[in-house]
Amino acid sequence: MTSGAGVGGMFTAEAAGVVLVSACRTAGFDPAGAELLRLGSNAVYRLAGTPVIVRIARDPGSLPDMTRAVRVARWLESEGFAATRVVADLEQPLVVDGRVVTFWVSAQDAVVYADLRELGDLLRRLHWLEEPGSLALPYYDPFQEVWDTLRALGDVPGDDVAFLNERAERIQKEYGRLDWVLDFGMIHGDANVGNAIRDRDGRPLLIDLDGFSLGQREWDLVLTSLYYERFGWHTRTEYESFVYHYGFDLMNWPGYPVLADLRELKMTLWIGHQVTTSEKAAEEFARRVHALRTDGSRKDWQAF
């Protein structure tokens, strides 16, 4: 294909739509009437007339991650764990015009999020599982992504890049001195209430399995703590229900501020890659960098 939708073109809704049509035809689905649910790290579509979600990865190098996500989903299903399911009897991922595409069973016709109580239960159960060696999960290395992302920030003012580099170096030094308290093992990698939805029967499910890896369990708790403590996206009651159902309050651990700083940095860098394609992203990136520079409030940070 020479549509501009592939790795040489911008990852826009129009470009992703071209990939969607080709991928659906290859997999035997009808793309007519598909609804774009989200355009971020993935373009996520719900197909019309069939309970299927299609995910098209922004990163053309994501084939290993998505292949692993499919394996993880099939293993979780064999364990009876409440997580999103891949479409059966379909060899995937597909690579279409340089983009990695996967097909998932749609939990229901509209996105209904689980609550923090249920997220805490899901993570506690997940952390009880012992993953088989056949999954070949990688070790979670947050700084590999940080440095790769910083090197690729070509459309961001140089003084902002220098500031973010200095901040990353400071956080990496502090990170190296952390005294972890929870067990090392399998983690979701991006656990937050946005990745826990309800199915048609009201049962909570974990979704977005791309980041499954081996790491410290604190990583699966930090976003919920950060969203409550710094962003104000959760109420105190909601947060306390999460803590009660998981069984540990990350904010009582001295290393929490370091993980929170690192997560904020990663969230800001992710937005930085979209400044040339989205005016909203450019405004949000400037807002976040200013808050980091001045240690200002994060209460006005917008969810992406």
Rank of each mutant, 00 (worst) to 15 (best):
T50H: 04
W75T: 03
W233M: 02
P31H: 05
V101K: 07
L262Q: 07
S22Q: 15
L153S: 07
R85H: 11
A107I: 00
L63S: 04
L164M: 14
E240D: 13
S78V: 06
W104K: 02
D201R: 10
A34T: 08
G211A: 12
V96T: 00
R71K: 15
S106C: 15
D183E: 11
W180A: 06
F248N: 00
D159N: 03
L221R: 01
R263S: 08
R288S: 06
P257T: 05
R25V: 10
R68I: 12
V54K: 01
R38I: 01
R46P: 01
R85Y: 12
G232C: 12
G185C: 09
R25P: 00
V54W: 04
R288K: 02
R217Y: 04
L36V: 02
L39G: 06
W233S: 00
G296F: 03
L178W: 07
R25S: 14
T26Q: 14
D89W: 03
P31I: 02
V96G: 03
V105K: 11
A291L: 10
D179R: 15
A34M: 12
W301R: 05
E174I: 04
D65V: 02
R151K: 15
V289L: 03
R58E: 12
V105S: 12
G255L: 03
M66I: 15
A57D: 08
E91A: 14
G272T: 06
T276Y: 08
H290D: 14
R263M: 11
A23W: 02
L122R: 06
V52I: 08
R167T: 06
W270N: 00
R85F: 03
F103Y: 03
A162R: 06
T268Y: 05
T26D: 08
V243K: 05
R177V: 09
E79H: 07
E279R: 15
L226C: 04
Q108D: 05
H273G: 13
D179H: 09
L37F: 05
